[in-house]
Design a protein around this nucleic acid. Sequence first.
DNA 1: CTTAGCACTCTGCTTTTCAGAGTGCTAACG
DNA 2: CGTTAGCACTCTGAAAAGCAGAGTGCTAAG
Lengths: 368, 368
Amino acid sequence: MDTRQELTARQRTILGLTVREYVKTASPVSSRALVERYGLPVSSATVRNELAYLEETGHLTHPHTSAGRVPTHEGYRYFVERLLGEVELPLRERLTIVHQFHQARQNLEQWMPLAASTLARTAQGAALVTAPRSERARYKHLQLIATEGLGVLLVLVLHGGMVKQRMLTLAEPSTQRELAEASDRLNQVCSGLTGPEIEVQVTQLPRLEGEVATLVSDIMDRVDTQWSGTIYSDGLSEMLQQPEFSEAERAQELVQVMEERSFLRMVIEQALGPEVGHVRVLVGGEGEWDQLRACSLVLTRYGVTDFTTGALGVVGPTRMSYGRAISAVRFVGGLLSDLVQDVYALEGSEERRSQELEGDRQGGQHGG
Amino acid sequence: MDTRQELTARQRTILGLTVREYVKTASPVSSRALVERYGLPVSSATVRNELAYLEETGHLTHPHTSAGRVPTHEGYRYFVERLLGEVELPLRERLTIVHQFHQARQNLEQWMPLAASTLARTAQGAALVTAPRSERARYKHLQLIATEGLGVLLVLVLHGGMVKQRMLTLAEPSTQRELAEASDRLNQVCSGLTGPEIEVQVTQLPRLEGEVATLVSDIMDRVDTQWSGTIYSDGLSEMLQQPEFSEAERAQELVQVMEERSFLRMVIEQALGPEVGHVRVLVGGEGEWDQLRACSLVLTRYGVTDFTTGALGVVGPTRMSYGRAISAVRFVGGLLSDLVQDVYALEGSEERRSQELEGDRQGGQHGG
DNA sequence: CTTAGCACTCTGCTTTTCAGAGTGCTAACG
DNA sequence: CGTTAGCACTCTGAAAAGCAGAGTGCTAAG
C-alpha cells in the first residue's frame, strides 16, 4: 500500500522489467518470464518473492491468483519518475520528423495536423494538438465586408495570425465604401491594442466604428478567457487496435473521451502550467478524471512562455511506452516551439522595427 | 437476383415493414413477428412465401437457415427510393434546431461544429460537415506581417471570408512599413481577381509585390483545385453504441474510415454533383468503396450552386433510419444554405452596391 | 537470504447438450 | 390458384462440463 517505501536496487530492477515486459507483451508477466528473458541472476522463486513484495507496496497487482503481475497506476508512476531516465528518439526518426516539419514550415495551416500525425505515428498512440493562443490578444487588422441587407461580415486578424469571423447586423445600411473607410479608421486607431484598450477608445469613435469596435473588443476578450479553438487529433484508430480496446465497450469509451473536446481542453488546461517545455505525464487520469482511468496522457506546452502557447500530447492506454511517448512529445513540442517563435513571438519586433525608423506608436506594452 | 422486378403491393408492404422492423430491432425479422406486430391480414406462412420471393429478387437475405430476414443493400435502396416517400422532421425538432442556428448566426466559426452536432443528434449517426468553398477563389485582402529576419507572415483573405496563412522568406530584408505599403498596393491591384488573373499582373509589379503576388496566385489555385479544408465530424461515439459495432473490430474499422479525412472528401466529391439541395443516399458504399460496406451515407450539398458550396451528411450503419437521416440532412442543409447565402453569396452584390444602392436580389434556389 | 519442489487455483479453450426460434415443404382447403 | 395448418429440419446461443496449462504461494532444505 505504501508506494513511498524505498525499494532495493533489485526490486527497482524487477519493477522496471515488469513494466517494460508488460508494455511489450500486453499480458501479465510471470516470474519465470522475467528470469528467462532478461537473464536475471536469481531464481524465479526469488523473483516471486520480490513480486509479492512489490504487490504489497502497491506497485503491482494480480488479475487473479494464478496470473502474472501487472503494474498498477502507482507502478507506472514510479517507473516514469524514478526508473525511466532521459530518453531520446533515435536519430533516424528525429531526422525524418525534422524533414517533414521543414517541408511544412511555410504552410501554417498544416502545422497542427502534421504535428498530430507525426506524434501519433511516433508515439504509437492518439495525438492531440491545440492551436497556439496568445496570452493577450492584440488587434492587427480588420476587414468589413458588406453582404445582404444590413448584414456585414467582419474578419478580424489578431497578432500572431489568428483570425476571427463574425456576422453583424447594422442599425442602418452602409455601402461597401463606407464600410471600407470605417475599417481603415479602426485599423489606424486600434492597431496593436488589446480588448480592454479598444473598449476605452469606443466612446471617442463615431457611430458605426464604435459599434464595430465594441464587438471587436468583445471578441478579443472571449479569445482571451474562453478555452476556445480546435483540437487536432490523429491516430485514434491505431490506438483502438491495442488489445485493451478489444472489448467494444472500452473502445466506445475511448472514442467518447476523444470526441469530447471541451473535456480534453479542460484536462489539458488543468494539467499543464504556463511554462513551455515541461512534459507532464498523467497516468490513468490520476484519480481525478474517471473517464481517463484506462488511459495515460503525456502532455507538454509549446510556444513561447507567457506569450503564445499551445499544448500537445499523446493519449495511450496506461500500458503505453512512456519512454517513446515522452521523447516524442518533447521533440515535436520543441519543433513546434521553434516554428511558433519564428512567426508569433517576434511580433513585438514589428513595433521595434517601426520604432527604429521613427516611433509614432503609443506605448506598446509587451506582455511579460 | 433481379432487383428491378416489379413487386406486388403486398410484397412492397412486407419489404417495407421488414426494413422498418429490422432498423428498429437490429435483429433478423421473422414472418411471425411481422404478422403479429403489424396485424397483417394473412398468415405467417403466406408472409413466409413472400419473404422467400423477396429473397429471390435480392431484396432480403438470410443470415442462416433458421433465422429471420435481413434487408440486403438492394433492399435498402428499394426502400429509400420507392417506399420511403417524403419525410419531414417533427415540428418540435425543427423549431429547436432553427433556434440553435439562430443563436449561432453571427458566429461563423460555430456553424460547422453546430451543424455537425445537430445532425449527429437528430439523425442518430455520425455527422460530417465540410466548410463552404468558393467555386473560384477571389482575392479580397492581403496582410503582410514582418517576423524574424527575412521571414514574413502572409495572411490572405478571400472573398467569402476564407483565410489562408503562409510563411515566406524574402530575398532581402524589408521593414514592416515596406511590407505594409506592398500589401496596400497589392490590395488595390488584385482586389476581386482570381488566381490566374493575378498571375497575369505579376510582370507589371515591382520586385517584392511580384514575389508575393506569385505566391498568392499559387495559393489561390491550390484552394480551387485541391480537396482541402477541414471536415468537421461529430457523433462518432454515439454511432459506436449501435449493436453492429459491438465487435471491436467493426468499431475499429469505422473509426479508421472516419479518421481518414481525405478518403471521406473523395467519397463526398464523387457522390455529390454541383447542385445544392439534392440528397444523395449511398448504401453500403454502393459497391464502390469497400471500407464503407457496413455503412450508409446520406449526403447533400449546401450553399449556393456554382458559387459557394460545402457538403454535409450523416454516416450510419446500413441499418439506419433513412427517413430521419434524409430529413435531417435536408433540413440542416437548408439552414446552412440560408446562412451561406447571407454571408457569401452576395459578395457579387458588393460591387453592385458600390455602383448603386439598389438592392435587387436573384431568387434563392431551394432544391428538393 | 535463496531456492527446489509441489500443491493449489484460476483461466481459457473445447466439447457437449439443449431449448428455442424460424424456416421450408407438403398437403389440404376454399 | 392462392392461402394456410402442420411438421420436420436446421441453426444458434447459452449453459455446463472437462481439461490442459500457466503461475502462484508455501514449505522446507541449502
